[in-house]
Design a protein around this nucleic acid. Sequence first.
RNA 1: CGGGGUGUAGCUUAGCCUGGUAGAGCGCCUGGUUUGGGACCAGGAGGUCGCAGGUUCGAAUCCUGUCGCCCCGACCA
Length: 587
Amino acid sequence: MKLWSQFFIPTLKESPADAEIASHKLLVRAGLVRKLGGGLYTYMPLGLRVIQKISQICREEMDGAGAIELWMPHVHPVELWQQGPRWAAAREIMYRADHAGDGKRGPREPEFVLGPTHEEIITPLVKTEITSYRDLPKNFYQIATKFRNEIRPRYGLMRAREFIMKDAYSFDADDAGAIKSYQTMKAAYEKFFARVGLKAISVEADTGVMGGSFSHEFMVPAEVGDDDVVYCETSGYSANREKATSGIVPADLADAAPAGAVEEFATPGVVTIAALEAAPYSVPADQQFKTLVYVGDGKPFVVILRGSDELEEAKLGSLGFTLWRAATAEEIEPVLGAKPGSLGAVKGTIKNPTALVGIFADHAIRLIGNGTTGANKDGFHLRHINVARDLAITKFGDFRRVRAGEPCPRSGQPLKIARAIEVGHVFKLGTKYSDKFGAIYTDDKKQSHPMVMGCYGIGISRTMQAVIEQSHDADGIVWPWNVAPFQVLVCLLDPQDAAAAEVAKNLAAAAEQAGADVLVDDRAERPGVKFKDADLVGIPLRITVGGKGLKEGIFELKWRHQKDVAKVPLAEAGARIAAAVAEGRAR
RNA sequence: CGGGGUGUAGCUUAGCCUGGUAGAGCGCCUGGUUUGGGACCAGGAGGUCGCAGGUUCGAAUCCUGUCGCCCCGACCA
């Protein structure tokens, strides 16, 4: 039991100017966090209690799934990252932890970095500690701080530079074991999110810089999310937009027949899809080829899409490059022979085809039978282009961004798109890290194999904010029982009245007896202030004790998520409070 | 990093366009009256107007630079 007057809950009447979204405003107004700088927050006493509750639930689910808790350093020797498989891609999100002023390293490379995640630490550890199949499988986890130099921190804890994450790493003898570990974790995640009161859905996801063979993200639908989730209510299909596909290209599509001889025509000043769509050219966007040039690991390549489609950059990850980016106009012209706006990939028109490492085409261009594309000559385009006849495609793939309303790849029904917050992610990593760090074991036939890994993250601090985002009203937070900083608030309206204070103490003891965490608002404040704070802070069950009620021999029970107030005779206090606490726990 | 915005008391902000003694509300302190949904009265403390240059007799206000913060995009739990 805690007394409000002796605890520390600095509530605010007004929202801080730098908070944009409800959950961020409420985090600050309810005294859960305070900002130090962009993406850097102090967890105030009340906020820390929520973090601890979420952490404990997470711990129980991880332990229940057979994972083993440990704690790893957060200052990492940079050499480990340099040896790892993603140094090039990951370095820019890492904070450096140089020796202050010793001058030995100079400005170029740090000696240490602050850990953004721990594959590079756990894998070498397991390499030296586990060498036999007898010790597999194993799954290690920690609940700890992560440091990421986010390009743009925002929305309070939603995307922070320093945040709390649960990260787990599984090591299996073979692929089948790794898939089992993955499924065990996925199931544990579902239980975790249910217990913290979050409606999270799992969706297929892109593996991103982590690498790996497949992954699922746990998403909380919310207007303020950073991600788009594509889903189908009929088939249950759901995927991150970066990964999502649609059935817009029929599986049995027959390539369209050539429509006529290739013909060049002048298009002075036309450098956009829209301009070519307009009169006098009048070429529909979906009959144009969009030719984009990218640079993958230093080498240029071409991506072709329908003019009406957008490139989903993350999908270029399937091409096997470590890093990729759009090419600049200066890089494009010497290779293709024209500036962006007049580019194409028709055989024979590319100025320096050997410089390209590939011409990759989205499947959807096969829907174009008689297309128009740039001539690789500024101010000219080509018409009557046929995919099979005129383009030298290295490889077809899925590169386009899915749009709402396109047919679901499974059911054919229209796909929907919603914003969501990513709160958890499970990856099947394969042997990417174990190969690199030599995490090898010997099987029962004396054969050596790389361990098959998986990794699993939950944003603990982000989960706290996602809960608020999903569970609040105009007056404040509405905590789910399991993660509430306190579950019962005894609101003592007349703290100077000794009899009332005594009753409050007894009711608080009864609630505590029933198994709830109890906070007693014993401040010398007016009732209005206490009620407003109670709603703002959002404790699920409120017990109100005031002189008015006591004269009639009653106190009040009120749920934060409901409007009505129950007047309870003092004589029934023990039973009613116990019942309410049991009800809260069950909700 | 690119684009947009913003910086005035602990918090929310007015003033800036059109240069001339820095104002309010909340919060805080003192006293009093109040006491079931953010009370009222009286008094009080609290500001290098983000920082550095410049223009000017004079700069919160105009100019330049710089830093912080917020929003949109790429990245992520």
